[in-house]
C-alpha cells in the first residue's frame, strides 16, 4: 500500500472515530457520565436501516436520524436517576444498559446478522494514479470535517454552545448564572444522537451486516481515544478519537503480517503508556484540570 493511500484510509477511520468520541464527550461534559451504551445508538441506527429496506434513500436517512435521536433522548430519561451517582455506579449502569440492549437486539434479530443494503455502490473506488480510493472513504472524511466544523461553530459561536461549554466546565456556576440544566443535558443527548446517526450512515456502507454488537465494536476504540485524548474537554477528546482511528490503520500496516493479530495488544499497550505518562490526557495541554472522579 502506498503511503498516501495509507494516510487517506487512516484519516477516514480517524474522522469516524472522532465523531463517536465527540458524541461521548458531549454527554460526559454536562453529566460526568461515560456512556457505554452510546455504541447501541449506532446499532439502533443500523437496524433502522435494515427495517426500512426498500424505502427511498432520503426517508431511510431521515428515519435513522429520528430513531437514533429519539433513542438518545430516551437514554437521557433512563439516566436521570444517576445525576448524583458516583462514577462507579454510572459506569456500571451504562454498561448494564449496553448489555441489555445488545441482548435485546440478539433476542429480536438473532445472532447471524441482517444485511443493511444501504448505498452499497459507494464502496466502489476511483483511481487516481496508483491510488484506489473508495467513495465512502472520501465521504467519511468530508462528513467528518463538515460535522466537526459545524460542532465547533455551534459550541464556539452560539449562545446554546456557550451554555454547553459553561455547563461542562463548571456545572454549578452555570446554573447560578441561569443556564437551564435539564435543557442543556437534553441538548447534549440530542447532539450526541445526531452524531451517532451520522456515523451509522457511513458505517452502514462500509460494514453492511448489522449484528447485536455492531456499535459496541466502534464504541470501544472511540472510548479509549476519548480517555487517551482527555475526557474532560471536548477538543482533546475528539482528537483522541481521531488519533486512535488513525493509529489503528497505520499500526495495522506497519506491523509485520505475522504479528498483525497482536494489533490490539500494541494499541492497548500504547493506551496504558499514555495513561501513565499523561493521566489527564494527551491533548489537554498544560492547564488540564485534574479529573474529579
Amino acid at each position: 500500500m502506498s503511503f498516501v493511500q495509507l494516510l487517506i484510509d487512516a484519516t477516514a477511520l480517524g474522522a469516524l472515530l472522532a465523531l463517536v468520541a465527540m458524541g461521548i464527550a458531549l454527554v460526559f461534559g454536562v453529566m460526568r457520565l461515560v456512556n457505554f451504551a452510546y455504541g447501541e445508538l449506532i446499532t439502533v441506527g443500523a437496524y433502522t436501516l435494515v427495517l426500512t429496506k426498500g424505502w427511498p434513500i432520503v426517508l431511510r436517512v431521515l428515519a435513522a436520524f429520528v430513531v437514533v435521536i429519539a433513542s438518545s433522548l430516551l437514554m437521557e430519561v433512563i439516566f436521570r436517576p444517576l445525576r448524583r451517582a458516583t462514577a462507579a455506579t454510572m459506569l456500571v449502569a451504562t454498561f448494564a444498559l449496553s448489555f441489555l440492549l445488545q441482548n435485546m437486539f440478539l433476542f429480536i434479530f438473532g445472532p447471524q446478522g441482517e444485511t443493511i443494503e444501504f448505498l452499497a455502490p459507494l464502496n466502489r473506488a476511483i483511481e487516481i494514479g496508483d491510488l484506489r480510493i473508495r467513495w465512502i472513504t472520501i465521504i467519511a472524511i468530508a462528513l467528518g470535517a463538515v460535522l466537526l466544523g459545524f460542532m465547533s461553530w455551534l459550541l464556539g459561536k452560539t449562545s446554546v454552545g456557550l451554555q454547553m461549554r459553561a455547563a461542562a466546565a463548571d456545572f454549578t456556576t452555570a446554573r447560578i448564572l441561569g443556564v437551564r440544566a435539564g435543557r442543556v443535558i437534553m441538548l447534549a443527548f440530542v447532539l450526541s444522537g445526531f452524531l451517532a446517526a451520522a456515523v451509522t450512515l457511513v458505517l452502514a456502507v462500509q460494514r453492511p451486516l448489522a449484528t447485536p454488537n455492531y456499535g459496541f465494536v466502534v464504541l470501544v476504540p472511540a472510548l479509549v481515544g476519548v480517555v487517551v485524548g482527555g475526557l474532560g474537554k471536548l477538543v482533546p477528546a475528539t482528537l483522541g478519537g481521531f488519533a486512535i482511528g488513525f493509529a489503528t490503520v497505520v499500526l495495522g500496516d506497519l506491523l509485520p503480517s505475522g504479528s498483525r493479530v497482536f494489533l490490539n495488544s500494541v494499541l492497548f499497550a500504547i493506551v496504558i503508556i499514555v495513561l501513565l505518562v499523561r493521566p489527564d490526557g494527551l491533548f489537554t495541554g498544560r492547564t488540564g484540570v485534574a479529573e474529579r472522579v
Binding site: 462514577a87 472510548l223 480517555v227 495488544s265 492497548f268 499497550a269 493506551v271 496504558i272
Partner: peptide, 14 residues
C-alpha cells in the same frame, strides 16, 4: 478513577 478503569480494560484486551 476512569483512567484506572480504562487501563484495566486495556489489560483485559491485551
Amino acid at each position: 478513577g476512569l483512567s484506572a478503569g480504562i487501563a484495566t480494560f486495556a489489560v483485559l484486551i491485551i
